[in-house]
């Protein structure tokens, strides 16, 4: 279960015609990569999102991000770059963080997807969500869901991370408002709180 999807949107694109493009200027490369994927067959997809089963017909080119935001109506993951460069669309796929914009929906057949809405709610927030508010680790808040899920995955594998480890875990998440230093503090606070709960 705990594995990266067999193929992502990037490998899919590569399969099409990307290989010979690597020497072109960035702009041209970008345009080609961004050209719409060809429409394809639809297939039935079944998966679990934040504990809820979802089943429906999905086109081959639909990304997990597109599915979550536009078909399922989940406001957790955000669309910022749609190209795997910012981490705002981060979700947990079978327990591992992925950029939902670079993951094809059909590669998630039978998978378990958790978004920021799945780890806590305003009523029962996760300690990370509480710590982000307490330390004011967000301004506009658009990067926040992705930041929280990257931090969540870090704390799952490392209950007591160093500052450096936190920085590394968040290296794929961009914040334009500049909240990083407060995010580090919030993650440390949440880690301490989670350890306290575990030891109780």
């Amino acid at each position: 279960m705990d594995s990266i999807p067999p193929f992502s949107r990037r490998t899919f694109l590569k399969g099409l015609s990307l290989a010979p493009l690597t020497k072109l200027p960035a702009e041209v490369l970008h345009e080609r990569r961004h050209a719409p994927l060809p429409a394809g067959e639809e297939e039935i997809l079944q998966l679990q999102v934040d504990g809820q089963e979802w089943k429906g017909k999905v086109e081959a080119r639909t990304t997990l991000l597109d599915l979550l935001r536009n078909r399922i109506g989940n406001t957790g993951p955000k669309e910022v770059c749609d190209l795997g460069a910012c981490g705002a669309c981060t979700v947990l796929l079978n327990g591992r963080t992925v950029n939902a914009c670079m993951t094809l929906a059909l590669a998630c057949q039978g998978a378990t997807v958790v978004t920021v809405r799945g780890i806590g709610s305003p009523r029962y927030p996760h300690p990370l969500q509480e710590a982000f508010v307490e330390d004011d680790a967000l301004q506009c808040g658009f990067c926040t869901p992705g930041m929280i899920l990257s931090a969540f995955a870090l704390l799952e594998r490392n209950a007591n991370p160093t500052r450096r480890e936190i920085q590394e875990a968040l290296a794929g998440n961009l914040c334009r408002c500049g909240t990083y230093t407060r995010i580090f503090e919030a993650v440390e606070r949440a880690a301490a709180e989670l350890r306290r709960r575990r030891n109780k």
Binding site: G120, V133, T144
Partner: peptide
């Protein structure tokens, strides 16, 4: 803050 951090905003 909490609405933003829980993805419901």
């Amino acid at each position: 803050g909490l609405a933003k951090a829980t993805g419901v905003a």
